[in-house]
Amino acid sequence: NQASVVANQLIPINTALTLVMMRSEVVTPVGIPAEDIPRLVGMQVNRAVPLGTTLMPDMVKGYA
């Protein structure tokens, strides 16, 4: 099963992502693939992302 990117903490709206904010986990539904974590660093979320939430492509500005 493919691992997805999951929020390791509450990520406030418009926050630029850092490695410490994300972890990989096998979840359903599948979100952004864990191998894209390096690409996500520095990108901003367009909404608040609660701890444990799977990051979906539409949550990250410029990802989709």
Score class of each variant (00 low, 15 high):
residue 44 Q to S: 04
residue 57 P to R: 10
residue 55 L to E: 00
residue 23 R to F: 06
residue 10 L to S: 10
residue 16 A to N: 04
residue 62 G to K: 09
residue 58 D to T: 15
residue 20 V to K: 15
residue 26 V to E: 07
residue 53 T to D: 08
residue 12 P to H: 10
residue 28 T to A: 08
residue 35 E to C: 02
residue 7 A to G: 08
residue 35 E to F: 07
residue 40 L to Q: 01
residue 43 M to N: 13
residue 45 V to S: 12
residue 40 L to I: 15
residue 47 R to G: 09
residue 48 A to S: 08
residue 38 P to D: 13
residue 2 Q to C: 02
residue 15 T to P: 01
residue 56 M to D: 10
residue 24 S to W: 09
residue 1 N to D: 04
residue 25 E to T: 07
residue 7 A to I: 10
residue 25 E to C: 02
residue 28 T to P: 03
residue 26 V to G: 05
residue 30 V to A: 13
residue 29 P to S: 05
residue 55 L to F: 09
residue 34 A to M: 12
residue 6 V to I: 11
residue 21 M to W: 06
residue 25 E to F: 09
residue 6 V to Q: 14
residue 27 V to I: 10
residue 21 M to P: 01
residue 45 V to L: 10
residue 39 R to Y: 12
residue 37 I to Q: 06
residue 50 P to R: 14
residue 63 Y to V: 07
residue 62 G to E: 15
residue 43 M to G: 03
residue 41 V to N: 04
residue 34 A to R: 10
residue 61 K to S: 05
residue 47 R to C: 02
residue 11 I to F: 02
residue 37 I to H: 04
residue 46 N to D: 11
residue 60 V to M: 13
residue 31 G to K: 02
residue 54 T to M: 15
residue 12 P to F: 11
residue 61 K to N: 11
residue 3 A to L: 13
residue 33 P to S: 12
residue 64 A to G: 12
residue 17 L to P: 01
residue 44 Q to Y: 12
residue 19 L to A: 06
residue 22 M to G: 00
residue 14 N to P: 03
residue 16 A to S: 08
residue 22 M to T: 04
residue 48 A to K: 09
residue 47 R to F: 10
residue 14 N to S: 09
residue 46 N to Y: 11
residue 41 V to E: 04
residue 60 V to K: 01
residue 2 Q to N: 14
residue 55 L to N: 00
residue 24 S to R: 12
residue 36 D to W: 10
residue 22 M to F: 15
residue 10 L to A: 05
residue 43 M to P: 00
residue 49 V to T: 05
residue 19 L to E: 05
residue 49 V to Q: 05
residue 25 E to K: 05
residue 39 R to I: 04
residue 3 A to P: 09
residue 33 P to Q: 08
residue 36 D to S: 12
residue 44 Q to A: 07
residue 62 G to Q: 14
residue 34 A to W: 06
residue 49 V to S: 03
residue 43 M to Q: 06
residue 42 G to V: 02
residue 8 N to R: 04
residue 26 V to Y: 13
residue 57 P to N: 05
residue 35 E to I: 15
residue 60 V to Q: 01
residue 47 R to S: 07
residue 36 D to C: 03
residue 43 M to L: 09
residue 56 M to I: 12
